[in-house]
């Protein structure tokens, strides 16, 4: 119940934010935090991690790369599995969000 109320509050905030760009960045941030940041970090991956940074990268490049992983034209066990769960709009939101982050 509390969660539901909280989600409603979040949704209200998102609607108030108004223009489409802001909403997609917010969703992108949330989705990036859930799906990508565990390995890639937000601004940059861990100093000790063998993963490439995504923060500040060109959104178009990110979109293409994630879609290639999704349709398996680019091979990586783990990325094929993770990208496979994303929709086009989620990919666009995530790419826009990472593109907006200063590394």
């Amino acid at each position: 119940m509390k969660i539901a109320r909280y989600s409603a509050a979040m949704l209200a905030t998102m609607l108030v934010a108004g223009n489409a760009q802001a909403v997609s960045l917010y969703v992108g941030q949330y989705k990036a935090g859930m799906v990508c940041a565990q390995c890639h970090g937000i601004r940059m991956p861990s100093a000790d991690a063998p993963f490439p940074p995504l923060g500040g990268r060109d959104p178009e490049y990110l979109k293409t790369a994630i879609k290639q992983y999704r349709d398996k034209t680019r091979k990586s066990d783990i990325m094929n599995a993770i990208a496979g769960s994303l929709t086009d709009s989620e990919i666009a939101d995530i790419a826009a969000y990472y593109g907006s982050v200063k590394p």
């Binding site: 970090g41 991956p45 861990s46 100093a47 000790d48 991690a49």
Partner: peptide
């Protein structure tokens, strides 16, 4: 803490 709880971070 660093991501891995150890190392450069």
């Amino acid at each position: 803490r660093g991501k891995y709880g150890r190392g450069e971070g």
